[in-house]
């Protein structure tokens, strides 16, 4: 599948109708989601034929993208049942198979490293400090090969230090910088669109 085709299909994925501020529920738009998963597949071969997990999957965009790029088994985990219901509808609409688990990333009920790749768009940790690194910690404990994740460019040094020193990732590399154009989903967003620079990271275990 070509990148443009993937992006176009992901454009049909429904997003949160009432995003929850405390969970930092920002949709992963088709532009970013398609590039993230496409790069994981074409540059590193981390999607096709693999077991892939999407942590904080929300409405399922990244997991669905992985499934479209022929991941063999995809598991989406989220703490919000309403988001998973939207994800289930999206899966039916797009005829994509994906497992969904209602769980808290902070005390994830997984027995150890069982998936090949984790791909995620975690909370940036601006509402609840440290949420971003909690997601990364859980992902690095669960994946056997690599973790792809989005973090604010302004936190680059913090993420790198945390990943390598505290969470014992083998490598931590910024693959590219993306613009995260958030539609003003919350009342506290004054401008109509909020443009945030984010890094696409790849961590290896």
């Amino acid at each position: 599948m070509k990148l443009k085709q993937l992006e176009s299909i992901l454009g049909d994925v429904s997003q949160f109708s009432k995003p929850k501020i405390d969970l930092e529920q920002y949709p992963t738009g088709p532009h970013i989601a398609s590039r993230m998963v496409y790069m994981a597949e074409t540059t590193f071969g981390d999607i096709s034929g693999k077991v892939v997990a999407d942590f904080g999957c929300g409405c399922g965009t990244l997991g669905i993208a992985a499934s479209l790029l022929e991941a063999s088994y995809v598991v989406g985990v989220d703490i919000d049942y309403q988001a998973l219901e939207v994800a289930q509808n999206n899966m039916q609409e797009l005829e994509v198979e994906m497992e969904l688990v209602l769980d808290n990333i902070q005390d994830l009920s997984w027995r150890g490293p069982v998936v090949d790749t984790v791909i995620m768009n975690p909370p940036f940790g601006t509402r609840r400090k440290g949420a971003d690194m909690e997601f990364l910690s859980a992902a690095l404990k669960t994946a056997t090969t690599s973790v792809y994740s989005l973090h604010k460019t302004s936190t680059r040094e913090h993420v790198q230090r945390g990943a390598l020193r505290d969470l014992k990732a083998k490598t931590a590399e910024v693959l590219c910088e993306l613009r995260y154009d958030l539609p003003a989903s919350y009342k506290f967003h004054k401008k109509r669109e909020v443009d945030i620079a984010v890094d696409l990271w790849r961590f290896t275990i």
Partner: peptide, 19 residues
């Protein structure tokens, strides 16, 4: 939920050693 997912999940209640 399929059995591969079942094979990944454990009970993570505080104090539980064999979940």
């Amino acid at each position: 939920m399929r059995l591969l997912t079942h094979n990944m999940l454990t009970c993570n209640i505080k104090g539980v050693t064999k979940g």
